[in-house]
């Protein structure tokens, strides 16, 4: 569940112009945002649970080094959310532990 976002966009910047889905829920985002930035902007701070202990994690380095922001993007698991730019209608899901293989597989 998101909490109210504690981040705000700069007032003179471009407006949020597209919609993405996070865990099935609509999230407004700005073209040019990375997936991780868009989720933080919307107050989603827990973006996966770990395969080892199942605890929640969220974006940490935002520059592709830490692999904490792994999410499933349009059905592809374990993508680095901070390295992918949002597109209108993009479907993003939190990683829940280890990845599955493909649709229909465990």
């Amino acid at each position: 569940m998101p909490s109210a976002s504690t981040f705000a966009r700069l007032p003179d910047g471009p407006a949020e112009d597209i919609t993405i889905l996070f865990n099935g829920e609509a999230v407004r985002a700005r073209s040019g945002d990375t997936v991780a930035a868009a989720l933080i902007a919307a107050g989603h701070r827990i973006t996966r649970t770990t395969p080892v202990s199942g605890t929640g994690r969220g974006p940490y380095c935002m520059m592709g080094a830490c692999f904490e922001c792994l999410v499933e993007i349009d059905g592809e698991p374990n993508r680095q959310g901070c390295m992918v730019q949002v597109r209108d209608g993009m479907r993003i899901d939190a990683m829940s532990g280890a990845r599955k293989l493909a649709e229909g597989n465990p």
């Binding site: 504690t6 981040f7 705000a8 966009r9 700069l10 910047g13 700005r30 040019g32 945002d33 990375t34 930035a37 868009a38 933080i40 902007a41 701070r45 827990i46 973006t47 605890t55 929640g56 994690r57 969220g58 974006p59 940490y60 380095c61 935002m62 520059m63 901070c82």
Partner: peptide
């Protein structure tokens, strides 16, 4: 490792790329 903890560099990237500025709780 708690969600909500990030690097200062991450904060700068959020500012530069997405114009995001913390309004509370930082």
């Amino acid at each position: 490792t708690l969600p909500g903890v990030m690097t200062a560099g991450a904060g700068q990237i959020l500012l530069k790329t997405a114009g995001l500025v913390p309004q509370a709780g930082l």
